[in-house]
Design a protein around this nucleic acid. Structure first.
Length: 267
DNA sequence: AGCTCACCCTGGACGC
DNA sequence: TGCGTCCAGGGTGAGC
């Protein structure tokens, strides 16, 4: 479930590891490493220099120009533990620091992964704009929608166009913009595109403010849950009354993704 | 080129 | 209690 607000929340809590020195790296499941441009040993003895985010990816910079990229997939978690804590299930990689703390990479379903790479920017050359940046605007989105028959929701989930929106925030943004998720992208009018851009930004900002959505798996770097699940208006609310018009929320599969919407408020 | 769908994987919910 | 089935949805890539 980690989408942009969840990854951003983890990134914020992981600022505390900047400056910590890596004493040891344990690989319990080496196949969780997707890219071996660097050997794990190369990271030992170095300090974390920065943790940043691009879309749903976390980027770890180390001293002397080493990097690591992480994606949480569906069930991935990255969190701090104390040395000696009992190892939890599905922890695939552990970084031990010289101060006695550890960073655990846990991922039950293993849709996520780690990339030990030299130049992380190369991974993101084909990635779309950050939806919270000023580059994401009506003038960016309008030409992308032109003549596209794909559902607008499918397009919002395309990371090559916009990076960071996932299933939950796509449904919530479309509700806020009062647009049905299965509308052909090319059928959106200028006013609707404008509303959608605003709604995407508002929903993502609110998600960050609430420190993410915890339906099942999500937790931050200190194992704390998010709160945005208490503010969801359509996602996961099939058959429950719309908060605005009391009509039941409907669920429909769009491009293999479960989608939730109000048939009355959204056009 | 645009689009759809199957696949990877595990845990939890649900029906019998 | 247990077993089988289905669903969750991130990204990728085959195939139409």
């Amino acid at each position: 479930m980690p989408e942009l607000p969840e990854v951003e929340t983890i990134k914020e809590t992981l600022q505390d590891i900047v400056g910590l020195k890596i004493e040891d790296i344990k690989l319990f499941k080496p196949e969780y490493i997707r890219c071996w441009q660097n050997q794990p040993d190369a990271y030992v003895g170095r300090r974390f220099a920065a943790v940043s985010r691009r879309g749903k990816f976390l980027i770890f910079d180390f001293e002397e120009g080493l990097h690591m990229v992480a994606h949480l997939g569906m069930s991935g978690r990255i969190y701090l533990e104390s040395r000696g804590a009992e190892l939890e299930k599905h922890v695939h990689v552990v970084f031990s620091f010289s101060n006695g703390q550890e960073l655990w990479f846990q991922d039950a379903r293993r849709f996520g992964g780690l990339w030990l790479i030299k130049e992380p920017r190369e991974m993101f050359t084909a990635m779309g704009v950050e939806p919270l940046s000023s580059r994401f605007s009506s003038s960016y989105l309008t030409p992308l929608l032109k003549n596209r028959r794909v559902a607008i929701k499918t397009l919002l989930l395309n990371q090559r166009l916009i990076s960071g929106i996932g299933n939950i925030y796509a449904d919530e943004a479309l509700f806020k913009a009062r647009i049905l998720p299965n509308r052909a992208a090319g059928s959106l009018q200028p006013k609707e595109i404008h509303r959608l851009v605003r709604a995407v930004k508002q929903v993502l900002r609110a998600g960050i403010e609430q420190r993410g959505t915890t339906l099942r798996d999500f937790q931050d770097g200190y194992k704390q849950k998010g709160q945005f699940q208490d503010y969801l208006k359509v996602y996961g609310r099939e058959k429950e009354p719309c908060f605005d018009c009391r009509q039941p929320i409907l669920r429909q599969v769009i491009n293999g993704r479960s989608s939730h919407f109000c048939p009355c408020c959204q056009k």
